[in-house]
Amino acid sequence: MANITQDNHRLRLIVRYTVLSLIALIFIFPLIFMLVSSFKPDYQLLADTASLRAFLPVGDISLTNYEKAFERAPIFLFMFNSLLVTAVTVLLSLFFCSMAGFSFVFLNWRGKQLAFSIILATLIVPFETIAIPMLLMVSKLPWIGLEGLTWGWLNTYRVQIVPFIADGLTIFLFTQYFKDLPRELIEAARVEGSSWWQVYWRIVMPLSGPVIATAAILKFLVMYNQYLWPIMVTQQEQYRPVLVGLQYFFQLNTAWGEVMAYLTLITLPVLAFYLVLQRAFIASIASTGVKG
């Protein structure tokens, strides 16, 4: 009897792992195809799509595609640009959006309802549809920097950063999380004479690790994958990000091996970033997701 249950248990385990692994296969096979193909010469890459060899590192395997890809485009420059723009935007976004969220949840001010409605409404404006008016605008905006007052933001990093710092979804995520924080903590701090800034910085933010991780990952993905906007605002190679760089590889005769190598290279930083934040991320969604 005991043996049967044990066998039963083992069988169920095997079934479970099999199901999990089969599903995992569905999610990962295009990525394996990408990685494996990046090591193959073009003719073999294309011929291999006819069989399982598409997923196996067999045949004429080499790093040639990577070498050629680096010759074709300044890949590190593009990655540096993307990571810089992404990192700065994510940091500023976390700061400004959490402050706004804090204000919407804990503070009581005139116009709050209207402001929050506007923020929710912006969620339904796809970026593609406002890009041109925005271009006309940023080309005339002033800036005070090292060279003093200048007009026009084109061909800079800031034009890729500033417009994307604040967004409705990030603010919304923070408000949802803050609503669940124990209110007594805040009230106690206020009674003890803390300023609102101190409440925000010393009490609320330290408790917000999970939501910060969530918002960071979502923002990271959006920013790292910017494409339409950089094409419009960066006329100089020195400011171009990775997805604009991808176009360097689509010539009349596309070298698919190089494309795969490039795709692999630009996907790696995101994967790494995600794996690092994964634990915090899943824990954080666990506490933000529940409030619809």
């Binding site: 402050m99 706004a100 001010w109 417009p163 604040a166």
Partner: peptide
């Protein structure tokens, strides 16, 4: 305080989403 906390984020959104959309 409410406005001070909300303003950076809200202001940026007005400038870079709402204004261009009004233009659209």
């Amino acid at each position: 305080s409410g406005w001070l906390f909300a303003l950076p984020g809200f202001g940026l959104m007005m400038l870079f989403i709402v204004v261009p959309f009004v233009f659209a």
